[in-house]
Nucleic acid binder design. Structure first.
Length: 301
DNA sequence: AACATGGGCAACCGCTATCCG
DNA sequence: ACGGATAGCGGTTGCCCATGT
């Protein structure tokens, strides 16, 4: 027997929201907040809607700081880089793009950016092979398989297809633990009072940042450090300055989008680090040296 | 002008994670 | 420690509109 539904779907309104409903929800949330309970909110607000529907409407459409459309090339680059690095974890990707929602980013990727990427990729494949397309190239699966070590879909909700490019599949548990420890230190830098100069960064990261509590066994990447730090770990790759293979859709085919990387460093760093000093420190660091064999954290350690 | 087709986007569905008693 | 309730997430669906025939 399954769980009871969150609301009686036969008695609540579904489908597109009317302006009146939008106004009811907007004014209620602005006056009272969500109260931490979306299920009870529709009744309090006088809406005949499911709580989940209200939450989605607010988060994706009614929030005051939402931006719709008009994606910049900078945002394109961030999305592509992050997708390459962490896969379809839209909430994480969206969190790096102020004013964008996961749904919006997901739709944008699925309807526009993905096609752009595939087109660029096939164009480059034709160039590289004198017109012969690589077998399987251009499909989502081949894109995934051709990507660099990817932490995509680290959660247990990963689909079978995602598993092919899952983080866990790419790195050994010991490597993950090692990376997680590094991340823990670096992550703390965002709140540190004064970061050291870049050249001292590696040795002193641990000193200006208290280590977080050890992760629960078997869940190092997936829980306490995963969501926040996985993408930070792959900053060089996110920027396209890591070790993408030349034929990679993002490292190669997406080269035009990833060009002008150096000038984008500051903007990107600002996206990744809430603390301006940490962003500055990262920007100033040397990101272009070759990656270590493990392919992990070469700019951060 | 009428119809078919495809793209874009909002909303829904079903699942996992997390919280809380 | 356990189980129920809720939040959050990613995949999918379906509607609307623009464009082509």
């Amino acid at each position: 027997m399954g769980r009871a539904p969150c609301c009686d779907k036969t008695s609540v309104k579904r489908g597109p929201w009317s302006p009146e409903e939008d106004e009811l929800l907007r004014s209620y949330v602005q006056n009272h907040g969500t109260g931490g309970n979306w299920i009870a909110l529709p009744h309090k607000a006088g809406l005949n809607r499911c709580g989940k529907s209200c939450r989605l409407r607010w988060l994706n459409y009614l929030r005051p700081d939402i931006k719709h459309g008009g994606y910049t090339e900078q945002e394109d680059r961030i999305i592509c880089s992050l997708y390459n690095s962490i896969g379809s974890r839209w909430s994480i990707i969206a969190s790096k793009l102020p004013g964008r929602t996961d749904n919006d980013v997901k739709n944008y990727w699925n309807t526009k950016l993905k096609k752009k990427a595939v087109a660029m990729h096939s164009q480059q494949q034709q160039h590289a092979s004198g017109g012969r397309a690589r077998r399987g190239a251009g499909t989502p699966q081949s894109q995934c398989a051709s990507m660099q070590p990817s932490p995509a879909s680290a959660s247990s909700a990963a689909s079978a297809g995602d598993a092919a490019c899952s983080f866990g599949a790419m790195y050994s548990p010991s490597t993950l633990q090692q990376a997680t420890a590094v991340l823990a230190r670096y992550d703390g830098a965002a709140t540190a009072p004064l970061p050291p100069p870049p050249q001292q960064q590696a040795s002193s990261l641990a000193e200006f940042s208290p280590a977080p509590p050890p992760p629960p066994a078997g869940s190092a990447i997936n829980s306490w450090a995963g969501g926040l730090a996985l993408d930070d770990m792959f900053l060089p790759e996110l920027l396209g300055i890591g070790d993408f293979p030349p034929g990679d859709i993002f490292g190669g085919g997406f080269a035009p989008l990833l060009q002008d990387r150096a000038s984008s460093l500051q903007e990107l760093a600002a996206c990744y680090f809430p603390n301006a000093q940490a962003a500055e420190m990262w920007t100033a660091a040397d990101h272009v040296k070759p990656p270590p064999p493990a392919g992990l954290c070469h700019s951060l350690t």
